[in-house]
Design a protein around this nucleic acid. Structure first.
Length: 554
RNA sequence: GCCCCUGUAGCUCAGACGGAUAGAGCGACGGAUUCCUAAUCCGCAGGCCCCGAGUUCGAAUCUCGGCAGGGGCACCA
């Protein structure tokens, strides 16, 4: 409908220019919006006010020219009014809205999807927690945001690849191995002291116990530096398996778990650094190698090889990002915790130094979750082992409620997550509001089936019978769904879906309470059944994008 | 000190590319169920859009300067 009105306006503008009433050019983007106030019609455009500037005429005068120039062969419009400072208000003929539902009927499960992305390849990297401990609630938010972002991008026609980068090399992994070794020795009766930086969680002791059970005490007298790699591999592997399982239970899947170690095979990182050194993006100062990230706006250059010869995390990440682009992704999206925001300029610099457009890398920052229990902050630290795991949240709160909650706010907004509150008030959780709308419609359809009435298709109903204000409202909202998906994809803001769903569910619930779908009037019953069937389709499609279930009964 | 995010109703938050009288949920208060699921609905109340300038026909939205909260400023990841 929006598109139709936009095109009518465009033609009118063109006609006005041809007649010499308006100066060219035609604006590149004509805005037509849904109105908030019914007295402003159904849709409105501010285009006359925009044209007024270049025409140096009164906006209302321009609006008059435009409204008179509109040709409406299909009879979509009842009337066009000029209002306020120069708005064009479109009043759509009642029956014309019903046509919008034809698309829903035709597209079914695909309604809301489009091919705007034209199959362009996008990679989304998210979670990427290093396997030194189980995923905690902070990771959960990034996991959902990334997962749904990928779903949304897929829906608008991109070819999306989901990836988890495993930081399975370097200091932190070494600390992990050492931590397990220390617990292992402790289990064998030694008194050990844990140095700063070691992991203390219970899971470390569990891993040590498993290793002890499997291999006995034979590592007790080995030299630590020789035996730590074995401990690291064992622990890292086991933890990673746990992470994968937790994500699976949370409904989050990946196309690839990419190991950092891969990058070092055949001296891959070293070769890349030498290449960049030849291009003068890397230089030596003292014993260390530095990347000239200041050439692209970073505030200082960054070390890639330390004095001791070890590469930094950054060095591997440069190689990783080049690897992504070499695999043919046009756009690469990284989803990071907000505590990594200082890392953006250097990563962006690296991408540009590698010869890719700045825009080819998009970084989404997800603010950290402020975890509460009964209103009191819960201390979170992987090293001390004090944290609430993703697994616990899924078990306590449930997958659907947890996922939905993480999408209730913009990613860059702080999020309080109170475990007790989430549990206690779970029945009042917004996710149930939306799911309930879905279940209610299913219930109506079941009842209709019992009476021998099937869900009709568009061609079987007289959709012009749907003319109550609430019905028009529902139709408009249903018609908005594809735009919401597109908007979420364009701005990389998946939270728009939950807000839309709340809107749609609210309008439906209100309609449901006021009007009977099933009645003695066969024609009206069919039309209304068809309408709620369309609502059902949208709810189902949207919930699927969110990875939240759509129950038929509650 | 520098950089990023946030600041909107009692609380938690939306607010599209600058548009008309700034919205929702929760909470408070008052109502609705012989009828497709009351996990619902209806009504009512609640505002210095952090402050101050600027840009313009028009600013919660854009610019500049402040204030407050959070985060970041590693040869950690």
């Amino acid at each position: 409908m929006k598109r139709k009105l936009t095109s009518l306006l465009e033609k009118s503008i063109q006609a006005g220019m041809d007649a010499g009433l308006l100066p060219p050019p035609v604006p590149s983007h004509i805005e037509v919006e849904l109105t908030k106030d019914p007295s402003h019609g159904d849709y409105a455009s501010n285009v006359a006010m925009l044209l007024a500037a270049q025409a140096r005429k009164n906006p209302r005068e321009i609006a008059k020219i435009l409204s008179e120039g509109i040709a409406d062969p299909e009879g979509v419009l009842e009337r066009v009014e000029i209002a306020g400072p120069g708005f064009l208000n479109f009043f759509v003929r009642g029956g014309a809205f019903a046509v919008l539902l034809e698309t829903v009927d035709r597209q079914g499960d695909l309604y809301g999807s489009s091919d705007l992305g034209r199959g362009r390849r996008i990679q989304v990297e998210f979670v990427s927690a290093n396997p030194t401990g189980p995923l905690h609630i902070g990771h959960a938010r990034g996991a959902v945001v990334g997962d749904v972002m990928a779903n949304v991008l897929t829906a608008v026609g991109h070819q999306v690849f989901r990836e988890y980068y495993i930081n399975d090399s370097g200091n932190q992994m070494n600390n992990l191995g050492e931590s397990v070794l220390l617990r292992y020795r402790e289990l064998l009766g030694e008194t050990v002291t844990f140095p700063e930086g070691c992991y203390r969680g219970d899971y470390i002791r569990d891993l040590a116990a498993e290793l002890l059970k499997r291999d006995g005490d034979r590592y007790l007298h080995e030299k630590p530096e020789e035996i730590i790699p074995l401990f690291t591999d064992y622990a890292g592997g086991a933890i990673l398996e746990g992470i994968k399982e937790d994500l699976r239970l949370f409904g989050v899947g990946f196309d690839l778990y990419f190991s950092e170690r891969e990058l070092y095979r055949d001296d891959g990182v070293g070769k890349l650094l030498r290449e960049l050194q030849e291009k003068d993006f890397i230089y030596r100062e003292g014993e260390a190698l530095w990347f000239r990230t200041t050439a692209f706006g970073d505030e200082k250059d960054r070390v890639v090889i330390r004095q001791n010869g070890d590469p930094t995390y950054f060095a591997a990440d440069i190689a990783y990002h080049r690897n992504k682009f070499l695999r043919g992704f046009e756009t690469v999206i990284d989803i990071w915790g907000a505590d990594h925001h200082g890392y953006i300029p250097r990563m962006s610099a690296a991408v540009q130094a590698l010869g890719y457009e700045k825009d080819a890398l998009k970084v989404i920052l997800v603010q950290l979750v402020n975890l509460l229990r009964d209103g009191k902050p819960v201390a979170m630290s992987t090293r001390s082992g004090e944290f609430v795991t993703l697994r616990e949240v899924v078990d306590e709160v449930g997958k659907d409620a947890a996922r939905y909650n993480f999408l209730m706010r913009r990613s860059d907004s702080h999020l309080d997550f109170d475990l007790e509150l989430a549990k206690r008030q779970s029945i009042e959780n917004p996710v149930y509001y939306v799911q309930y709308a879905h279940a209610r419609i299913c219930s109506i359809l079941r009842m209709a089936a019992e009476r021998g009435v099937d869900l009709p298709g568009f061609s079987q109903v007289d959709a012009t019978l749907l003319r109550l204000p609430e019905e028009i409202d529902l139709i408009k909202t249903i018609a908005r769904f594809p735009e919401v998906v597109e908007g979420a994809a364009r701005t990389l803001e998946p939270h728009r879906l939950t807000f839309y769903l709340n809107d749609l569910a609210a309008i439906f619930h209100s309609y449901y309470n006021k009007n009977k779908v099933l009645s003695d009037d066969g024609g009206l019953t069919a039309a209304r059944l068809f309408l709620v069937g369309c609502v059902l389709t949208v709810l189902k499609n949207a919930l699927k994008m969110l990875g939240v279930s759509a129950p038929e009964k509650m």
